[in-house]
């Protein structure tokens, strides 16, 4: 997964949001973009900088599907499970990916090479099934095409 500039400190990442109304989501996005995930130590700093309780930050962090409390796999594959993709065989595509990657949905392979996750709609419903691989979108997927994309991403 691509991340931002790792040389930045947490405080430097949060600083631009000082004074922004309702800054917590933009801050969490920025921290995750910079460090790949938002760990417990970061929660303490974010809470202090935004003058929130740690419980507030924890509550928001755990409510939203996007935010990670531990690092993702080096490659992240999100396959759409919503109705339009189901109508075009996303269940079979997911089963194929789980078998091929030896990784069940919602999990990361033990070697850290890949995380397999569901997503509920990428807005590509007229070209289903679709998926997001390391932030890039792909549609009209077949098991063969997915294999080719994974081979490229994980090599």
């Amino acid at each position: 997964m691509t991340t931002g500039n790792p040389s930045l400190s947490l405080a430097e990442v949060i600083a631009p949001f000082a004074g922004m109304a309702g800054a917590l989501l933009p801050v969490l996005h920025a921290v995750q973009q910079a460090f790949g995930h938002i760990d417990d130590a970061a929660v303490v700093v974010i809470a202090e900088k935004l003058n929130l309780s740690r419980a507030d930050v924890h509550g928001v962090l755990t409510f939203y599907h996007d935010f990670r409390r531990r690092p993702a796999g080096r490659t992240v594959l999100k396959i759409c499970r919503a109705e339009a993709c189901q109508a075009m065989g996303s269940d079979a595509l997911i089963a194929h990916a789980e078998a091929r990657l030896a990784t069940p949905m919602h999990s990361q392979r033990a070697d850290g090479a890949i995380s397999l996750e569901p997503v509920y709609c990428l807005g590509l419903c007229s070209a289903a099934p679709s998926a997001m691989l390391d932030g890039q979108v792909f549609a009209r997927l077949s098991p063969d095409r997915l294999d080719a994309l994974l081979a490229g991403a994980m090599s």
């Binding site: 109304a21 928001v60 599907h65 996007d66 997503v119």
Partner: peptide
């Protein structure tokens, strides 16, 4: 941040408020 219910207008306002 990946929450479907935030498409509901009041949940969306909560989300903007952080």
């Amino acid at each position: 941040a990946g929450s479907y219910v935030c498409g509901e207008e009041t949940a969306l306002l909560e989300s903007i408020e952080g």
